[in-house]
Amino acid sequence: MTDSSPILKVEGLEKTFGAVVAASNINIDVQPGEIIGIIGANGAGKTTFVNMVTGYLTPSAGSIQFEGREMIGLPPRKVTQAGISRSFQVSQVFSTMTVEENILTALAIASNTGLGALRQMMRPELVSKCNDVLERYQIAQHRDHTAGTLSQGVRKLLDIAMAVISKPRILLLDEPTSGISVEEKFDLMDIVMTPLREDNVTVLFIEHDMEIVERYVSRVIAFYQGEIICDESPTEALADPKVQEYVIGTSHPHAKKGA
């Protein structure tokens, strides 16, 4: 970890739903450009953490500072405007629109604020940018397909492409490869991660597949019952006994031999 000031500083974050503690004492410093894998079993608090950082949930206690600015209390749109964007475990696309219209919608919102929103939607510069995005995320061949009819992989790419259009400094991906076949997973991650690395975007992504984690991240944060049980490099994290026991499971190929 470097000594530069963190782009995201999370301190003492907590979230309770009545008697249920969904997140407790979460402290994370994220440096600019880091690519972090968030792992944990179902219900460990990973998505709750992402939801709190992106304004979907208001924490019960703690602080979330992005580039020195407190983010708690900001609605999702303000969080996006500040420079934090996200994709979703269940892809959030405009299902009755075509792929091209989805991207155009995202571009139009990103380029219009205030009275600018009354400018014409279909502008040549937007269509040109839309073509670039479609090519970059390799979904140009689906441009005229209705989003609701797309395969899971293409929907995921579309969801992520839309999230990136606002030019975030931090992108949170909630299980980008869930529901994707083993053969397609690495292709999808290559398509997603290449432009993000080029643009030096800080990425935090939730992932269950440890092969994906090992290949793409520089740091792993493991959650268990709402708390962080490990925050290390992938090699160290995957060898950590607590991660082995509570996250990976002893029968998994990544589990220590003889464990």
């Binding site: 609605p75 749109r77 996006t80 405007q81 995202a106 919102i109 929103a117």
Partner: peptide, 8 residues
């Protein structure tokens, strides 16, 4: 949800 997370 998507509209809100696009910043509108």
């Amino acid at each position: 949800v998507r509209v809100e997370y696009l910043g509108l």
